[in-house]
């Protein structure tokens, strides 16, 4: 399982100038952080890697499949069972309870034991007691935990997180970070995240900086591991 990005340009014209050519390979079970200033193109890069966006040129291989050759529907099929995504602003359905939000992907793909699995996921993020609360009744940290539970409830092989702690206070942010790394370890999930929090990034096995549209490696507290980065 690996992911590879060579010079990429997203489809939207306003981002052309942002990514000038980056190359990155992520190995299974790694955790990779991409940092950079606001507007540097971090989120766009993440959307390209997750197959949410299609590049106009370059190559992206996700879990052995070349994304640039796939149609919207084919990319959706790749995402369906193997990719999880966590958004900075949680993106929970306001009219669905915490449990229903987690049930959504399971029901969408008619997975077995949906309710048990959703409850288990809620339990894992420590929110079993908030199962029947609407997002509006939850704190920011709780909402993000629900979003995390929704992202990994389908047991994805790779989890993308776009500024997962961007909207949270320091203490809550740390809890969320811990949760993400625990899941990375316990579920053997590859984790690719975007953040501007260097402390958070430092806890990942790799940290890359997006500067002037190019990816540059930063020193990490851990060893380089399976990283295979080519620019």
């Amino acid at each position: 399982m690996h992911q590879e990005i060579t010079p990429t340009k997203p489809a939207s014209s306003d981002a052309i100038a942002i990514l000038k050519g980056c190359s990155l390979t992520v190995q299974p079970h790694e955790s990779v952080a991409i940092i950079g200033r606001s507007g540097s193109g971090k989120s766009t890069l993440l959307a390209l890697m997750a197959g949410l966006e299609k590049p106009t040129s370059g190559h992206i291989r996700l879990l052995g499949q070349s994304l640039e050759a796939l149609s919207e529907d084919e990319r959706a099929r790749v995402r369906a069972r193997q990719v999880g995504f966590i958004f900075q602003n949680f993106q929970l359905m306001p009219s669905m309870t915490a449990l229903e939000n987690i049930l959504m992907p399971l029901e969408l793909f008619q997975m077995d034991n949906a309710k048990d699995r959703a409850l288990e996921a809620l339990q894992q993020v420590g929110l079993a007691h908030r199962a029947h609360h609407l997002p509006g009744e939850l704190s920011g940290g709780e909402q993000q935990r629900v979003a995390i539970a929704r992202a990994f409830v389908t047991r994805p092989k790779i989890l993308f997180a776009d500024e997962p702690t961007g909207n949270l206070d320091e203490e809550t942010a740390q809890q969320i970070q811990q949760l993400l790394f625990e899941l990375n370890r316990s579920e053997q999930t590859t984790l690719v995240l975007v953040t501007h929090d260097r402390e958070f990034a430092r806890q990942c096995s790799h940290t890359l900086q997006l500067l002037h549209g190019q990816l540059q490696p930063l020193a990490t507290t851990r060893e380089a591991g399976h990283a295979n980065l080519a620019l």
Binding site: A50, D73, V78, A80, V83, F85, M93, M104
Partner: peptide, 23 residues
């Protein structure tokens, strides 16, 4: 805006065009 975000979310979760339209 609510429909847009929920459909975009379903798409991000991996729902295909046909399924989205149908749902």
């Amino acid at each position: 805006s609510r429909w847009q975000s929920s459909l975009a979310l379903l798409r991000a979760l991996g729902a295909g065009n046909v399924q989205l339209r149908r749902l």
